[in-house]
Each structure stands twice: as C-alpha cells, then as structure tokens.
Design a protein around this nucleic acid. Structure first.
Lengths: 254, 254
DNA sequence: CGCGTCACTTTGGTCCGACCATAGGACTTG
DNA sequence: CAAGTCCTATGGTCGGACCAAAGTGACGCG
C-alpha cells in the first residue's frame, strides 16, 4: 500500500550511488514559523500590529489550526509575539526583550549544573562588569545616576538586613549595567548574576564588616561614574568584583 | 449570568477597597511545562533518558494531548528535550547547547535592528575577545592549538579568496573562544560575530593588504596562545579587534 | 537453516470539529 | 442618557481520528 508499485518494479535499488546527502524533510510547523518570522523581520508585519486571527491563518496557509498554533507558539517563545485573548485580542508582533535574553542565558547556565560552572560565572563578571562601569561613566544619564545613588542609600540603610542588602546591591549592579547602554553586555551581566543567586541559596552567611566594605566600594564606583571618569570606574569595579579569597558569597554581596 | 446575583444586589460595588493585586491565572500548559522542567532539573528525569510517551503523560496529568504537547513544545524550544518519532522514539531529556544560546543571542540582536546596534556588537567583541584569548592561552589543549594553526594555514591559503578567507578567520576566532573553556563568553563572542555576519552581507569589499595584515595578527596571537602567554594574547587581541577607522568590515575580517 | 519480506505495534506528528473563557461592542431598557 | 444585558470575535482547551516513522517478530521461500 505504502509502496510505489509503478514502473520497473521490482527492479533492484541503485545502491552505492555517488553519495546522497541526507534529505532534509522540514516539518510544516517549522516552515510556517520561519515564514512568519521572515515577514516580521522584513517589516511586512510591523511591530505593534496584530497578525491575522488564527482561523484566518489556517485558511490562508491551508494548514490545520494545531499546526498554525504550534508555529505561533514558537514565535511566542522567541519573544516575537505576545498573544491576548478576548475580542480585540490576537497575536501582536513584538521584539524579544532583555528579560527574554536573560532568561535564555539563565536557563543555559542553570542547566549546565552549578558545580562545574561557578568559575565560568565569576570569570564572566570579572570581564564584563568593569567595562560596564566604564561605559556607564561615559554614557549615564542623570536619572540613571540618581537610581544608582538611590540604591546606594538603600544599601546603607540595610547594612544590618542581609537579604535586603543583597537585593539593593543587585539592583545597583543592574542599574550600572543598564547605564552602560550596551544591552548585550548588560544582559550577560544580569544573567550571570541571576544564575549565581539562584545557584547558591543567596548566602545568608555574610559578615557585617564585609557588607560595609562592599558598600563603600559601591559608593566609590558610583562617584566615579558621576564624575564620568571611565578609567577609574573600570579600575574600581575590577578590584571590587575580583574576589580576594575566591568565595562566591563575597562576589554575590559585592 | 456572569454576575453574582445573591445578597444585597444591586448594591454598589465597594470600590477603593484596600487594593487587590491582579490575580495570576496560570495556564495549564505553562503549569505542566514548569512541572516537567522542575522534574528534569531535580534529576527525576535524568539527562539522556526518555520521558513517558505523550499518551501516558495525558492520562497521568488529566490534560488533553494538545496541552501536553504544547508543554513539551516549550521545553523542546528551550533545548531541554529532543523528540524522535518512531517506535523507540519519544522525548529524550537533554541540555541546551551552546548553539541554542547563540541562537537566542543572535535572534535578540537581529530583532533589535542592525542599524542601532552595530556599536553594541563591536563593543562587545572588544571587551570579550581579548579575555577569551588570555584564557585560551592559559587553558588551551594541544589539539585546540592545532585547530587554530590549521585555520591559520587556511587563511594564508585563501588570501585571495575573500569569502573563504572570512570563513577561515571566523573559524579561527571560534576556535580561540572555545579554547577559553568559558562557554558563556564563548557563546557571546560567537553570537556577536554571527550577528555581524548576518547583519552585513559579509562585506565583499576588502583589500588584499588588509587580509594579509589581519592574517599576520591572527598568527601572532596563535603563537602567544601556543606559548601560553596570557598577557600578550590579551594585548594582541585587543589591538587586533579594535578597529582603526571603526569600519565594520575590518572587524569582520579580523 | 538462513534470510529477506511483510504485517504489526508503538511512538510522535497532523488534522478535524467542537466547546470554553475572555473581552470588547452593540443592543435593550428603565 | 446611563446601566445592564446579550452578541460576537478571538485565543485556549479538549477529544478523537488518522498519518508517518521505526523497531519487532512471524512468516515463507530458497
């Protein structure tokens, strides 16, 4: 039944032919997803606009609704679509956010297993953060500077409250990364920090003096950024982020 | 119908109440995907093992097959599952590969629009590549060194063939990044390079002398890595990657 | 006995039709 | 005219059916 009983059957199959490359059989859902993504990137479906309803796409593409929905699901996962139910709902064309990228990096790091990758995370921060600080010094807006100072104040106020201190510290680092106006490095720094936090259980063991010391460091870096002194911001952040004894908690608090 | 016609209707609704947080309504597919992801991370479904068949998951989860498949599709997108049809097929538990991560970063960069982000990409490489070179100098294996030298030879052989030269150059950079044994920085470098290539149309306009000069630079860096001289590898890569005139094509060829 | 062939079984992939939940808009009604 | 009610378009879920891929084993022929 599933055979092809025409022509010269049962002639022998011509084997040993000149090397056949494995034929790629694309699945309908993937094809349709690629097609939609292409139309999105080409501007045929502008950002912010809504795609046609699923049922319309079904009759246009001659595919089943399940397949269409699978393709839409892929794009939704990639951050290219956001869908809302209801009458005026639909699939609105969007762009992947920094949060999406952070999520991908975090998932990747998390899935590799913390034990083997703590060095990777530490190293990455050592490389990236000083440069984020330097760029922030050159490009910060006044409001971004205000936000850093706000978090500095929060850290000072919470010197005795470990969790809230770490939270404020994290917010400060994120603010610095954001002020660098380099979304790639910012996302990478954000993600490696996030991965370290979820990896360790946020390190309750932390001495007060360590927090005070790290708070002073944050303050100094903020001032360098305020003065738009990129070289000094870079140098200070390098010394701040590089752990003296290699302990993870120092780096987290810092 | 959708009202609640009991009690003191039609009494006025108590507005201005103590502030109700928007109730989060989790969709079944998301819940199930989170549940499976949790079981994967916890080791309950070890890497390499197969999940139960979809139909079994359906009766265990009391959900429809469509919902189960949507959840599986999410995990598949995230690189946590790979599925194969056929009798011994199924959903095999996996880990997101570096390629997955590169894909995410590439998509992100691509979606932001090339025009506004070329500076971001250039900067990122300026920051990341020198450190990759330094780490590679410290950690390279002999086989990794061999691969770099192999690509060096290919570059020399293809000095007159722009496309193949760029290809070999790209392979060399990837080899260096891989030898750094830092998957995060490696993926970031790989992705930013990939994004630049797909962004520009691979720059046919390239002078022979420029290629010769860049080839010499590659060779010198390879030798520094061979000598395990991290500081020199870092310095050379920094000078190599930083464009003299800011042109993108120089950076691509480099 | 050996080996190819074919049916069978298990699995993911696709399709269809129906219904549910949501959220605007049009309509009715006091 | 205002407030409530019904309608409708849309995404989300469901159940069942069939198709396609791929291993297993029985069968039959030489």
């Amino acid at each position: 039944m599933t055979n092809d009983p025409g022509l010269t059957t049962p002639g022998p199959r011509r084997t040993g032919a000149p090397l056949i490359t494995p034929v790629k059989v694309p699945k309908p859902a993937e094809l349709f997803a690629d097609m939609l993504r292409e139309k999105i990137f080409s501007g045929e479906f502008p950002t912010g606009e809504a795609l046609p309803p699923e049922r319309t796409l079904v009759e246009q593409s001659q595919l089943s609704r399940a397949t269409v929905r699978e393709a839409l699901g892929v794009l939704k996962q990639q951050g290219l679509l956001i869908t809302r139910p209801g009458r005026t709902g639909g699939s609105i064309v969007s762009r992947p956010t920094t949060k999406d990228l952070v999520g991908s990096i975090d998932l990747y790091v998390q899935a590799q297993g913390w034990d083997s990758d703590t060095r990777t995370l530490v190293e990455t921060r050592e490389v990236v953060e000083p440069w984020c600080a330097a760029m922030a010094a050159e490009r910060r807006s006044d409001s971004e500077l205000d936000e850093m100072r706000h978090h500095n104040s929060a850290m000072e106020a919470d010197l005795d409250h470990v969790e809230r201190y770490l939270e404020a510290s994290s917010a400060w680092h994120v603010a610095v990364a954001t002020a660098s106006h380099n979304p790639l490095l910012s996302a990478l720094m954000h993600a490696s920090r996030q991965a370290m936090i979820t990896g360790t259980q946020a390190s309750r063991f932390h001495r007060h003096e360590a927090r005070e010391q790290s708070w002073q460091a944050h303050l100094a870096i903020t001032e360098a950024i305020a003065a738009q002194d990129a070289a000094r911001a870079h140098e200070l952040m390098g010394g701040h982020v590089r752990p003296g004894d290699g302990s993870v908690t120092d780096l987290l608090g810092g």
